[in-house]
Design a protein around this nucleic acid. Structure first.
Lengths: 344, 344
DNA sequence: GCGCACTACGTCAACGTTGACTCAGGAGGA
DNA sequence: TCCTCCTGAGTCAACGTTGACGTAGTGCGC
């Protein structure tokens, strides 16, 4: 093992060239499988590279190449430890690997400052493109980056500016569908519990809720609407409040993952989970193992990721394609909690 | 918006220098906050950089710098969409961000070939260090990489070769503790269900199981040991087989996440989940919301990640530190399923 | 008034690679 | 025989940045 010498110097093309008794350029040709090299020279170079353990320096290569490609893309999501985000990352990674591209990943924590810094950080490393889950609020930093010509795809939330690809879910339509299913079962007092309204997805799902009520001929009860619930604890408390109303809801539409969990806790602690219906937006592991199983709107997360990756690579290949706004359908998964009729 | 011109050329130091009427070197000094530049020159450079939207090219910088640092580390885990892996990634990312370092992430899928390719891919990008979850089997590729002098930290599984840092969990000790708790409740027929035995963690947990039995004065029943269960479905079937034995187990120790879930399914489908005790290794979301709550050994995943990141940065700073093998304690979380006494 | 230290720059080359170009030698045609 | 074309190389410079070194100008002590 390395005893005292510190990090070894990596062999360069010149080292390989010297050993193979050719010029560096010939080594470059062999490495990049370009024509114009005789078979025995190729063999000598290959052998020399092998004995030296040569590995091309992509840094230098990307600096010099005319296309400036770094074979690296940036992924900027809200929180990489969130299952939704990490499933998305994995899907992007799988697609990227097919093109020999690696992924630089970062969490923006829904913080505009952090997003801006990470964006600059990615730009400094000259990534070929970026897949971004935009933070709520204004998207100035993203727009600026895009206007510099950086290939960019937004996932989960669409751009508020032009000429940029995006991939989203049928938030509104699926929320509407969920609410209509509850209404068809006879529910008339359906509560809405949602995440921060600055998030486009939250707002869309709320709109879908309103549409679902309208389509079913139900009136909106504003006292049954709770938004801006950050995290399961806040959602749990909000649910408690709803349940304490003189006319409590008979069904809950929980428009986000963590909100769903918070509401579930509240129902359980009052032993109402078999009496009050609940449909959540976003599937989660073990939702089928609870009692009752939790009915959810499931997003096609791998589908979202694949599409986002396809779009970013297409965009990298050809800057002049018209922008695409892909919408991936979500599915209602009936497991029991969403099929509870109202108590008579 | 960019109409037809393709990707804009990024401004360089020379562009900034020309606008600020200084040399490129002075721009470099200002950007890197090195001394030797007068206040008004600094201001001119800053202003020029701002108007041009200049962003340093880290690629070129890393090529030229004497330390060759790329301010990027590689993370090579088994499956980034796995909650354990993604929580680990997030912890590493947070620590890296403090040092202005970005993370190149990849999934090795426990495939030696893929791991080797990704390793080479990271090396080609000249990452400053790597945090690796080694695939099962031989670690030749990792050892070679390490012997070239690449700073490396192994997580979750220790190296089979020398001079390399690692961070692991108290797999054996915590497994032993779990089994001893079951024994203290009076269980004498405790089954072991585990993942692939080529994985070091699986083997350690199995050893802990054996130690737990021995410490409690229990004899090993080999018919109650199921290993190499890949995924929840296989685990579910294995559990069914155990339950069909003439003398079925009264308690299960499920030594991995997905195995735990599979066993839970089997118990539930037979309505035995309130009668047969179960302790799982690895916590998972909603484990507390099931009935009964699932008792688990919880690894300190953020702790593991933080430690791994600390070690890799220390190693990058100083190649000559003695290798560290950190062990992060896991905790038994009692939720009910592990506290069920044997049926009399 | 001279030397010396110090500050605030500038010049040059090089990091490892590749695009553009050159060149020697042999094949093939007029 | 001479000229052209093709193949298999090599040479050179440049990508954007920074380390090493050079230098003009100022201040200060003696």
């Amino acid at each position: 093992m390395d005893s005292g010498a510190g990090r070894r110097a990596e062999p360069t093309m010149r080292d390989v060239a010297a050993l193979a008794r050719v010029s560096a350029k010939t080594v470059s040709r062999v490495i990049n499988e370009q024509p114009g090299v005789g078979p025995e020279a190729i063999e000598r170079v290959r052998a020399a590279a092998r004995t030296l353990g040569y590995r091309p320096n992509l840094t230098a290569s990307s600096l010099r190449r005319s296309d400036k490609r770094s074979a690296t893309i940036g992924v900027l999501f809200e929180d990489l430890s969130n299952p939704f985000d990490s499933a998305l990352l994995r899907a992007v990674e799988d697609r990227a690997r097919q093109s020999g591209v690696l992924v630089l990943a970062g969490s923006s924590e829904d913080d505009p400052t952090l997003q801006r810094e990470l964006l600059a950080s990615l730009a400094s490393r000259r990534v070929d493109g970026m897949v971004v889950m935009a933070v709520g609020g204004h998207q100035d930093a993203l727009q600026q980056e895009r206007e510099r010509g950086t290939p960019m795809v937004l996932v989960d939330r669409p751009p508020t500016f032009g000429e940029t690809d995006s991939v989203t879910t049928t938030n509104r339509e699926s929320a509407r569908e969920a609410v209509m299913q509850l209404a068809e079962l006879g529910h008339r007092d359906i509560a809405f519990l949602g995440d921060r309204q600055t998030l486009w997805t939250s707002h869309e799902r709320y709109t879908g809720y309103l549409e679902g009520l309208a389509h079913s001929g139900l009136k909106l009860r504003k006292d049954l609407v709770c938004t801006d619930l950050k995290g399961p604890d806040v959602a749990e408390q909000a649910t408690e409040v709803l349940l304490d109303l003189p006319e409590p809801p008979t069904a809950l539409f929980t428009a986000q993952n963590l909100v769903t969990v918070g509401a579930m806790r509240a129902l359980r602690s009052r032993r109402l989970h078999h009496r009050i219906a609940q449909i959540g937006f976003d599937d989660f592991p073990l939702a089928d193992m609870l009692e009752p199983g939790i009915t959810v709107v499931r997003q096609d997360v791998p589908g979202l990721g694949r599409k986002a990756a396809d779009l970013i690579f297409a965009r990298i290949e050809n800057e002049h394609l018209p922008p695409v706004h892909a919408v991936i359908p979500a599915t209602l998964i009936r497991r029991g909690s969403g099929e509870i009729p109202p108590a008579t």
